[in-house]
């Protein structure tokens, strides 16, 4: 299940819903990304996330489908928030369930790497010294490219 929403989410409840009534799942890995109070500047007071409605859902769907093609997964839940968020707020959730831990760990890692380089979200950080758009990071592209070299 993929959701793009303004409201907050509860990682525990999302994971419980994913696992409910299932006894075939052997491993579940959950990643929650949070808003930091420091990034390009040391005093980030808020963050605003913009996205491209329509394309966002499609892009996230493709990333999850790619993960399902690479690993034997039994369930995926992906939630990304948009709008204005404060430091400490959860921003993204990836929950991956599989029969075995390795697939769950790797698929969760993969989904986050691809999300950061392929899904149309943009962050604007608000700090005491002004607002600025967050720049892309070379390290995110290196992280995402790990999955390509291994499989080519």
């Amino acid at each position: 299940m993929i959701r793009v929403q303004e409201s907050a989410f509860d990682p525990g409840s999302e994971q419980r819903q994913l696992l409910e009534g299932r006894s075939d799942i052997g491993a579940v890995v959950s990643f929650t990304g949070l808003v930091r109070d420091f990034n390009e500047r040391p005093d980030v007071s808020a963050l605003t996330l913009e996205h491209y409605p329509g394309m966002t859902e499609t892009a996230l769907g493709e990333i999850v489908a790619e993960a399902q093609a690479r690993w034997p997964l039994q369930g995926v839940r992906l939630i990304h928030r948009v709008g204005r968020l404060s430091p400490g707020d959860p921003i993204v959730l990836v929950v991956v369930a599989s029969a075995h831990r390795r697939a769950a760990f790797e698929a969760c890692d993969f989904i986050m790497d691809y999300l950061k380089t392929r899904a149309p979200f943009w962050k604007k950080e608000h700090s005491n010294t002004g607002d600025y758009w967050v720049a892309e990071r070379e390290s995110d592209h290196r992280d995402a490219s790990r999955w390509e070299s291994e499989n080519d």
């Binding site: 491209y52 999300l115 979200f121 962050k123 892309e136």
Partner: peptide
């Protein structure tokens, strides 16, 4: 057609 900067979500 949409033009946009590199993405920075997650």
């Amino acid at each position: 057609v949409a033009f946009f900067p590199p993405v920075t979500g997650g």
